[in-house]
Amino acid sequence: MVYGIPLEWYLIVAAALFCIGGYGVLARRSAVATLMGVELMLNAININLVAFWRYLEPPGTTGQAFALFVYAVAAAEAAVGLALIIAVWRTHNTVVLKDLDMLQG
């Protein structure tokens, strides 16, 4: 325990955050809001990584380094995802995911 806080508390918060983000991904109409849900899920993962680093191997660096790479991937995902949304918005004038079914044939 660090400062009297058990590891489980962090894991529970991360699990809850992950599920809230997952709900956002599943239930929102707007594509931008869906991406916001994905960002919340990535945050939950990072909480887990850092918490495990702190509680299991504080002298090591693996957890922090992994968290850094998650940041890079999150930024890349946000950049490409939102660029796609903007491109779709420009051609189809919508960001509502339900309306984007051109590939269904």
Binding site: L68, A72, A75, A79, L82, A83, I86, R90
Partner: peptide
């Protein structure tokens, strides 16, 4: 203008690079 938007993308990626 969507050009501002591309600016933020460039900024974000350089931000990540700086953090690394």
């Amino acid at each position: 203008k969507a050009q501002y938007y591309t600016l933020v993308i460039v900024f974000l990626l350089f931000d990540v690079a700086a953090v690394f």
